[in-house]
Amino acid sequence: MERRVALKSMAVAMGAMAGLPAWASGWNKSSLKVGILLSADQSAVLKGVVEAIIPKTDTPGAGELGVGDFVQKMVKDCYDKKSQDTLAKGLETLNTQSMKDFNKAFTDINRAQQTQLLTAMEKSGDADQKAFFGTVKNLTIQGYMSSEYVMTNITHYEMIPARYHGCVPVKQ
């Protein structure tokens, strides 16, 4: 590598490192919005779905930890347009089926009825419904297990494991 190229690369890297804190300090929860993938009604149904997959027990449920927003953000940012459409269509199908079977929206029916609808969707012969449920289920588990609450209170994640305790009293 030539010296000029190396010096130019180092100068660019130093400039980026100097500007990064100023750029990142403006971040807050409102500036990192989920994005507009789903309507408010669809977001509420998605929150109900993730809560039905991992309900609240002695630990918070997936809906309470904001896993619905995680699922929506992951599908919006990491999945193709077809998968995004499958998510929106699956939520609409779920809500329509709930209205047809129970005369109530998915968010208004009880947990047993929600589980019944989700089980029927999982066992459905329709490939889109299976894809919807599989995607939401996998992302719900991923979002729940990587949430701050679970990582700190249940799995006791340590960023740097195997600490070294140098000064430990020794018994004779």
Rank of each mutant, 00 (worst) to 15 (best):
A40G: 14
N95K: 05
K100D: 08
L65M: 08
F70W: 02
I141Q: 09
G19D: 10
I154A: 12
T57N: 10
L117N: 05
A13E: 07
N103L: 13
A22N: 15
V150K: 05
S83P: 07
E122D: 10
M159Q: 15
Y149I: 08
A52T: 08
E122M: 14
E64M: 08
D85P: 14
L65C: 07
C78W: 03
I53P: 01
Q97M: 10
E148Q: 13
N110W: 05
G15Q: 04
F70V: 02
Y149M: 10
I53N: 00
D126W: 13
K171E: 11
L91G: 00
M121S: 07
Q142I: 09
M74N: 07
V67P: 00
L139C: 06
V67R: 00
P169Q: 02
D126G: 14
T152V: 09
W27G: 04
L91C: 03
N153T: 15
T155D: 15
A11D: 04
Q172Y: 12
I36S: 15
I160V: 15
E148R: 14
A22H: 11
A162C: 11
F102P: 01
G26R: 12
R4L: 07
A22S: 15
K89T: 11
K29L: 12
L118P: 02
W27A: 02
L118K: 04
S124G: 05
